[in-house]
């Protein structure tokens, strides 16, 4: 029997909900072990644990205090969700003046590994429950969970001919054709730069990928570690027309491109990365 725990920082609790959707396999697995502290049980005093899943970004001093305590007490830490891994959507709060933050003590919005060491990253907003469950089970049972080193495009069943005309559309302007790649049709889709494992759940149901699983390995291992650069490269090689420069197009979508990462993709070295423009710069 091992000790398992969960800790929540600044989040929407979507990662917890995603894990809970696993249902009976989760309840059965955790019944075989002991939950030492968690929002699922009535004791949250941080105590020794073999595995701790953390979700949410570090938003304030209390989060930092809990993170340090968790790190001290836990043998292994799994960072689950885009907020814990990259800062996530919450990280955009960094760009707001403190008077617009509630409470104003929320000021950091950093990924968890900015404060404590992390053993396993499970990005996603939220990560699919089965991936989160496998990460937990693998860590408990000492096997390596699947590493999703491919992109969303690898799982997407839309036909892609890389024949983009260079003309771009916003989603409100027209209806995408079913079965054809969004990018080929002139809709921005982040599938080529986003980690797979989600079964392309959005593109299979008519919505372009917004990159919630974070940058793919290709981006992280590339020279610039840059979503912008890799996306630009992909669009450049797949565009047949010359109507518009892709740089100009991507400028318009910069908020969307960095919705879950803000600026720092996931490598420990904190690579150089193109920063989204601040409100003042716009």
């Amino acid at each position: 029997m091992m000790f398992v725990s969960t800790a929540e920082f600044t989040s929407c609790c979507g990662c917890l909900s995603s894990l809970l959707e696993v249902g009976e396999p989760l309840v059965s697995l955790l019944s075989e072990h002991s939950v030492s502290f968690s929002e699922l049980v009535d004791f949250q005093d941080i105590s020794p644990s073999d595995v701790t899943i953390v979700w949410g970004c570090i938003g304030d001093e209390e989060d930092e205090r809990i993170a340090n305590e968790v790190s001290r007490m836990s043998k292994k830490i799994i960072a689950a969700g885009s907020c814990a891994v990259y800062g996530g959507i919450s990280a955009r709060m960094q760009q707001l003046p403190s008077k617009e933050r509630v409470p104003s003590s929320l000021s950091r919005f950093e990924p968890v590994d900015a404060y404590i060491p992390v053993d396993l990253y499970v990005p996603g907003c939220p990560p699919p429950g089965r991936i989160l469950f496998e990460a937990l089970k693998g860590t408990l049972e000492d096997y390596t969970p699947i590493h999703y080193d491919y992109t969303v495009c690898s799982e997407c069943k839309r036909k892609c001919e890389k024949k983009h005309t260079g003309r771009w559309f916003k989603r409100n302007e027209r209806i995408p054709v079913e079965g054809i790649c969004f990018l080929d049709q002139g809709f921005l889709c982040m599938g080529p730069v986003t980690r797979g494992g989600c079964h392309a759940s959005c593109t299979s149901r008519g919505a372009a990928c917004i990159g919630c699983r974070g940058p793919s390995d290709t981006v992280l291992l590339s020279h610039l570690h840059s979503l912008y650069s890799d996306m630009l490269h992909y669009i450049s090689i797949s565009t047949t027309g010359k109507r518009a420069k892709p740089e100009k197009t991507l400028e318009e979508y910069i908020d969307l491109l960095y919705l879950f990462t803000l600026r720092d993709p996931v490598t420990k070295e904190r690579p150089r990365e193109r920063l989204p423009r601040t409100k003042e710069e716009k």
Partner: peptide
């Protein structure tokens, strides 16, 4: 939910103008 909306949490299914598919 996943079958209809793609994701059961934080789905992009509801969009201004209708639904994604």
């Amino acid at each position: 939910i996943s079958k209809v909306a793609g994701k059961s949490i934080n789905s992009s299914f509801f969009i201004p103008g209708g639904v994604s598919t």
